[in-house]
């Protein structure tokens, strides 16, 4: 049995130590936000927060998460009550296919929690691990900037 703290809830899961967190989130816990993109830590579609730091859930074995807290995009708000970044992404219509977007929001969340006033260069560098193939970067950048402009409170 493995105990995982996900979005403030404790889950006792009968899974192998080597199961990447991504699979446990999607299949055992039933969350959709973290996406499978590469399984190699190269694209960021699976990004979640572990102890407030962005990590690639596709590379993080569940056995390494004892005592740590995991947060996914689901913890940041809902369709009815979106969090500040989620609302900014909706307001900017910052998605095309949207497959990368949950990972983008989670990575931006990590930045703004640590630094509510990043400059443009810092945002670009911070977001570099996450790929978008539709070319929605312009809007993703604008959505993050709009939260920063409102004080960076997430």
């Amino acid at each position: 049995m493995i105990t995982l703290d996900i979005n403030g809830k404790t889950h006792e899961l009968d899974i192998a130590d080597d199961m990447p967190l991504l699979y446990a989130l999607r299949n055992q816990v039933g969350l959709n936000g973290a996406k499978y993109g590469c399984g190699l830590g190269q694209c960021g579609a699976c990004t979640v927060l572990v102890n407030d730091k962005p990590v690639f859930s596709c590379l993080t074995p569940c056995g390494a998460l004892a005592g740590k807290s995991v947060r996914t995009v689901e913890s940041l708000g809902s369709v009815d009550q979106p969090g500040p970044l989620q609302k900014a992404f909706i307001d900017e219509q910052a998605a095309q296919c949207g497959y990368c977007i949950a990972g983008m929001i989670v990575r931006a969340q990590a930045l703004l929690e640590a630094n509510p006033h990043p400059d443009d260069e810092t945002i670009r560098r911070h977001m570099a691990p996450n790929l978008c193939r539709c070319g929605t970067h312009v809007r993703i950048f604008a959505a993050i900037k709009s939260v920063v402009a409102q004080g960076g409170k997430v």
Partner: peptide, 22 residues
């Protein structure tokens, strides 16, 4: 510019893709 119907679910972890079917 009607806001897109699909974006709210996509930013909040809703089931939005064939990958999310169970």
């Amino acid at each position: 510019s009607l806001p897109r119907l699909d974006i709210p679910a996509k930013v909040s972890g809703g089931a939005a893709y064939v990958q999310d079917m169970r």
